[in-house]
Nucleic acid binder design. Sequence first.
DNA 1: CTAGTTGCAAAGAGTTTGCATGGCG
DNA 2: CGCCATGCAAACTCTTTGCAACTAG
Lengths: 134, 134
Amino acid sequence: MSKYMTRQRRALLDYLEAHADESLSAAQIAQALSAQEISVSAVYRNLSALEEEGRLHRSASGAGKELRYRYSGAELCRGCLHLSCTRCGRTFHLRRTDANRLVNAVAEEAGGFALDRAETVLYGVCGDCRGERR
Amino acid sequence: MSKYMTRQRRALLDYLEAHADESLSAAQIAQALSAQEISVSAVYRNLSALEEEGRLHRSASGAGKELRYRYSGAELCRGCLHLSCTRCGRTFHLRRTDANRLVNAVAEEAGGFALDRAETVLYGVCGDCRGERR
DNA sequence: CTAGTTGCAAAGAGTTTGCATGGCG
DNA sequence: CGCCATGCAAACTCTTTGCAACTAG
């Protein structure tokens, strides 16, 4: 898919790497890269390419209306599940072992349903936000 | 919010009730109601109203790109978690007790993260589809 | 009656695409 | 050099909105 490493692609990858596993909107990404003179189309095209390569996942968070892109970066993140706080927007990780337990529990309780960790995001309110607000 | 019960609203509610807890796209809904002469705007406006009332949740499934609407119908569904098969599209339920166990497990393992059951959808491949394909 | 709703069509927001130019390897 | 990738702007798709006509209560 990706044959050349252009300045634009480099910048995008760097940004995604720095924000691995976070749910970012295209606008957010474009804005962050605006200093580096990257056209919107280049952003979208590269995001699409990455998605086809399976390094990136698209979805839409509960509240927002635009698509969000989540780059699966670190190796240590393979096998874990992602939690997204609907209040502060931060992303948390469920370690592989804990995630495994959860995936197995679901399979057992729902007739062999095989949870897709890459595709699933758990929404809720993180401990910090819960502490602050009540 | 909703003060009058119009023919259009009635038809929409009937349809949603019949497909409670499924992830439907606006197009799908509009199409299903097309026989009953309902304008697209009416569909969207009513869906938005329902969302504000909290009876409906918006999100975007992993694959697709349009928003999907999920009507929380039955009382027996309160407290359960929803599983969506990315292969056949069907929606499954994790019974309240099993869901509780899962929610507690997450809270324990992720520093008090309070999973929002209404907002979260677990994606994966259901037992039936797994059986068929390998 | 009269305020909430509808339908239509036009406006918006976000994403995709065609085509000529530019730049990586 | 050749081919892939970029930029720009126009095209598209999905959703929202303004406004006059309509209708449930």
